[in-house]
């Protein structure tokens, strides 16, 4: 029997975090075929169009009839590229973003520093000096993303190897464990670098941008025909576990967008 459920593509990077996830909206219980695109092994493409093409290929979406793409936080730029790739019907694919923001060099640097902090905590050693700050300037990130990633990998592996060796691992064990640990963080950092290298394609559709009460990006979404901002009273951590948000998204996806526009504002 043919599955006629509307297909929703979700880009919400996995991992433990305080904030609820798009999965917590439980949209499959409202009759959707929900497909999570960000699953391991992750793409290592360093620009958003290539990363998106990789996702479409891996998940065999070339022929899929997609109703909407949903994305959280800094994955939004890649979600938009995915929307452009699967946008083949007369009606443009809908894009729903949650607390979304374009990736900046400062964001990449901040997440790299967080990776180092987490590794230091897990390895029970002091946090290293921020020796990598200079590799995150806009010029380096824009012109040589491969070099930025290479240096991040080198430094993450070196840091972890030193800590593990000092902690009585032998060299082979330390090297293998350090490499695997670094790759976990590099998956995320590559994702951010790819999102930074976005083309903001105009796929013909509009964006519904659902915001928690925390400060965040509220500008018109680049490339969108129009941007509907939906402000909620939810704390950032609870945005995606709020029943009203799930109901609002469902209503929007069922082409009853009045509740969206009524409660929101047009950017």
């Amino acid at each position: 029997m043919t599955d006629t459920r509307p297909v929703l593509l979700v880009l919400d990077y996995p991992g433990r975090r305080e904030e609820a996830r798009i999965a917590d909206l439980r949209l499959q219980e409202r009759g959707y075929d929900v497909r999570h695109l960000l699953v391991a092994p992750f793409s290592r493409e360093l620009d958003a169009p290539s990363y998106a093409r990789d996702l479409v290929r891996r998940h065999r979406l070339a022929e899929a009839s997609v109703a909407a793409v949903l994305s959280y936080c800094m994955s939004a730029a890649i979600a938009q590229e995915v929307a452009a790739l699967v946008n083949r019907d007369q009606e443009p694919v809908r894009v729903v973003l949650f607390d979304a923001e374009p990736v900046t060099p400062a964001a990449v640097a901040g997440q790299y520093a967080e990776a180092l902090r987490q590794m230091a905590e897990q390895l029970d050693v002091g946090q290293p000096q921020p020796w990598s700050g200079q590799i995150f300037d806009e010029d380096a990130l824009t012109r040589r993303p491969d070099e930025v990633i290479r240096r991040m990998r080198q430094e993450l592996v070196g840091f972890a190897t030193s800590a593990l060796t000092a902690g009585s691992y032998d060299e082979d064990e330390a090297a293998g464990t350090a490499s695997a640990l670094a790759e976990l963080y590099l998956d995320w950092l590559v994702h951010l670098v790819a999102a930074y290298h976005a083309t903001w394609p105009a796929w013909g559709g509009s964006v519904v941008h659902v915001l928690s009460r925390s400060p965040g990006f509220t500008g018109p979404w680049p490339g969108a025909r129009e941007t509907h901002l939906v402000r909620t009273a939810a704390p950032r951590a609870d945005l995606l576990s709020t029943a009203e948000v799930a109901a609002m998204v469902d209503a929007h996806l069922r082409q009853v967008p009045t509740s969206v526009t009524r409660s929101g504002e047009r950017a």
């Binding site: 996995p14 699953v39 391991a40 092994p41 897990q122 695997a180 640990l181 976990l184």
Partner: peptide, 28 residues
Amino acid sequence: GTSLHAVRICARIERTLGYRALPMWLIE
């Protein structure tokens, strides 16, 4: 569990059980 635990668990699964296991699978 932490990322380091995930790496160690998956390494041990591969060595002792003979299954491929990505640390990210455990995180997902």
